[in-house]
Design a protein around this nucleic acid. Structure first.
Length: 651
RNA sequence: GCCGGCCUGGCGCAAUUGGUAGCGCACUUCACUUGUAAUGAAGGGGUUAGGGGUUCGAGUCCCCUGGCCGGCUCCA
């Protein structure tokens, strides 16, 4: 029998191999037990894939990104099998891998409860122990329909096969690809069928290859991500290449929980959300107030230096303004309902004076447009940069309110820049630089950019100017040297935008600043300036916010620093700790001197022991402690303790 | 908004099958004055989120409202 030639490619080398026809991919990797799938000519395949002449084969190890996806996808299958064994009436939705785990959706009469998850986990362990084989089998559409006649959701997916799969919702393409349909059979050791699922694959060779997994939680999710559809019950799980990797993952989750700004906010006495005020409405306590004021003061200074002018606008306005701006047309649902004012009625209750609707402002831009329009403007004034810490109110749906990161009342560090079209490029460049520099000053320094471009279904303005503006934004973004991720269709209807995504200390990404072009408002407000040739021209408007909202930024920084703010932001910078009561006066003198130099210092003269005071200061994450006893008083010095526990004596 | 879970002093938690609320921290007072992450004692504080119902009796069971949590949808 003649041999065929294949190439085994790894990062290090490319090795030509002669193998007999019918050779399966796994036979190339018998010496490497971590290989659980193969990439053949660029396509991910099962290890049972039969090789052909000229194939280029790369082993996919379980700890690689692809490998983990495959592991998690296979674990999702095992979970679905366990669910259907325990709940025979459960109908299957979809079950893809996601970041750090997987989920599977089920249509069941009763939502899962935590005890169910335990039962399902136990059953999964049994299936894993049985070492069931994942076996791929191509089927025709009709065969698939016949085999899955009991699975209405799968039938729907078969109908959406191909082009429709992408639209079917996140993860649906995992089930049905663009090409032929395949069913994966789970076969027991004796070859009998344990379970099957419509799936594109690939999968692990057997269930035995799942070393570590855990079911995390259950929740409802709309079928195909559409609010109008049924809600299915989703179970989230995670799976890893080893018990240690799973442990590390769980540890990371704990770490994230430890940093949760909602928890740190109350532990460090920064802010709270009194029920009496309402959902999503925060109050800042004195310590959070210091933090916020420092952030604002620094931001103001930098804005002054960069040529911004400061404006103020009221929190409420007559509805007419938001009719002009279009907000009532587009976003009325997200606004607080109107206050009906100044209506007069006679004694029969008949309206004698109609009154007016006033609204809380959800945005500042219409006010800034009115400031621009308040008098004639010359090209010499452009770019005109109007800045405001503007408090806005948005009626966020009750289920989405979350700590400081999604609130109903917030203050934006909002600016609107009015520029001529030929100033756009340089203004966007300097704005992006300004934004990034300022974020760095607050301690975030790992960024990438996202470019949100036109939603063809929903936009206003000329195609020309969209194309020009998008190209300008893209060039500015590219010139920054940062990674640029496209977000097609993600723009607001009135213009494209760049958003800055920042990675925090534990690698999570947050959308921070946005720089957004607007072709709509200058039009609606009929903004004009006089050009050098005396003609009237329409300015382009740039919206930009660095923090997004101050509240949200405080939330992000709190998690980034785990509450241990850098000294310039720390609510209390120094705690002075006397060793015995007789050292109080001495430390008060030292503190007074520091205060004179603008340092936020407190003397802890409570009844506690020194050790307890140190502990309290540590728990409050105070950057510096000044400790003084007899020796220090005698030397006219203090013992200087850092938050890290390091110490310089006799300072 | 949708689905599910939860709600006990400021915070974190207890309270056998429904039998009349307790602990730690914090707080107040007193004593102690001690060199690098918790000194001791005493004391105050709760109509168990709010309202309604079942029951001889409800923190425990049922209903409504509010809030919070986890997701989904949404986020100008």
């Amino acid at each position: 029998m003649s041999e065929i030639q294949v190439a085994v490619v790894s990062a290090a080398e490319r090795a030509e191999r002669s193998v007999t026809p019918g050779t399966k991919a796994w036979e190339l990797f018998t010496e490497d037990p971590s290989v659980i799938a193969a990439r053949v000519n660029g396509e991910l395949r099962d290890l049972a894939h039969e090789l052909a002449e000229g194939d280029e084969v790369v082993g996919v190890t379980v700890e690689s990104a692809d490998g983990r996806d495959i592991l998690r996808h296979s674990t999702a299958h095992v979970m679905a099998q366990a669910v259907q064994e325990l709940f025979p009436d459960a109908k299957l939705g979809i079950g893809p891998p996601v970041t750090d785990g997987f989920y599977y959706d089920f249509d069941v009469a009763e939502p899962f409860v935590p005890a169910d998850l335990e039962k399902i986990e136990t059953r999964m362990r049994k299936i894993i122990k049985e070492g069931q084989k994942f076996s791929r089998r191509p089927v025709s559409d009709d065969e698939a329909r016949a085999e899955l006649s009991e699975e209405p959701y799968k039938l729907e997916l078969i109908g959406l096969k191909g082009a429709g799969a992408e639209e079917a919702g996140e993860g649906a393409s995992v089930e049905v690809g663009a090409g032929e349909l395949t069913i994966y059979d789970n076969l027991k050791r004796d070859g009998s069928l344990a379970w099957k699922d419509l799936c594109r694959g690939p999968h692990l060779p057997t269930t035995k290859r799942i070393p570590a997994f855990k079911l995390m939680r259950s929740a409802a999710a709309y079928w195909r991500g559409n609010e109008k559809n049924n809600q299915l019950q989703r179970i989230y799980g995670t799976a890893w290449e080893s018990k240690e990797a799973l442990e590390e993952h769980l540890h990371r989750l704990e770490e994230a929980q430890r940093r949760d700004h909602r928890r740190l906010g109350s532990e460090l006495d920064l802010f709270s959300f009194p029920d009496e005020i309402g959902s999503g409405l925060a109050v800042f306590h004195p310590k959070g107030g210091v933090l916020r004021k420092e952030m604002e003061d620094y931001s103001r200074r930098r804005h002054v230096e960069s040529g911004y002018e400061f404006v103020y606008s009221p929190h409420i306005t007559k509805g007419q303004l938001f009719e002009t701006s279009g907000h009532l047309q587009w976003y009325a649902e997200g606004m607080y309902p109107p206050m009906h004012m100044d209506e007069a009625r006679d004694h029969q209750g008949k309206v004698t004076k109609p009154g007016q609707d006033y609204y809380l402002k959800p945005m500042n831009c219409p006010f800034h447009c009115l400031i621009f329009r308040s008098r004639g403007r010359s090209y010499r004034e452009l770019p005109l940069r109007l800045f405001e810490f503007g408090s806005v109110y948005r009626y966020e749906k009750s289920g989405v309110v979350h700590g400081l990161t999604r609130v109903r009342g917030m203050t934006q560090d909002d600016a609107h820049i009015y520029a001529s079209r030929d100033q756009l490029h340089s203004e966007l460049t300097s704005t992006l630089k300004f934004v990034l520099d300022l974020l760095k000053d607050y301690g975030l320094d790992d960024f990438y950019l996202e470019l949100s471009t036109k939603d063809e279904e929903k936009y206003v303005g000329d195609d020309d100017i969209w194309a020009e503006a998008t190209a300008t934004l893209e060039q500015v973004a590219t010139d920054s040297g940062l990674e640029l991720v496209p977000d097609p269709g993600g723009a607001a209807f009135y213009g494209p935008k760049i958003s800055v995504q920042a990675r925090d200390a534990i690698g999570r990404t947050w959308q921070m600043s946005t720089i957004q072009l607007d072709f709509n408002l200058p039009e609606r407000f009929e903004l004009e300036y006089t050009a050098p040739d005396g003609s009237r021209q329409r300015p382009v408007m740039i919206h930009r916010a660095l923090f997004g909202s101050i509240e949200r930024f405080i939330g992000v920084l709190t998690e980034h620093y785990a509450g241990a703010f850098p000294p310039w932001l720390a609510p209390v910078q120094v705690v002075a700790i006397p060793i015995a009561e007789r050292h109080n006066d001495y430390l008060h003198k030292v503190a007074q001197e520091l205060r004179g130099r603008g340092i936020r210092v407190e003397v802890d003269e409570s009844d506690d022991r020194m050790q307890k005071k140190i502990r309290n200061a540590q728990l409050q994450k105070v950057p510096f402690m000044l400790i003084a006893g007899d020796r220090d008083v005698e030397d006219n010095a203090v013992s200087f303790r850092y938050r890290s526990g390091e110490q310089d004596n006799g300072v």
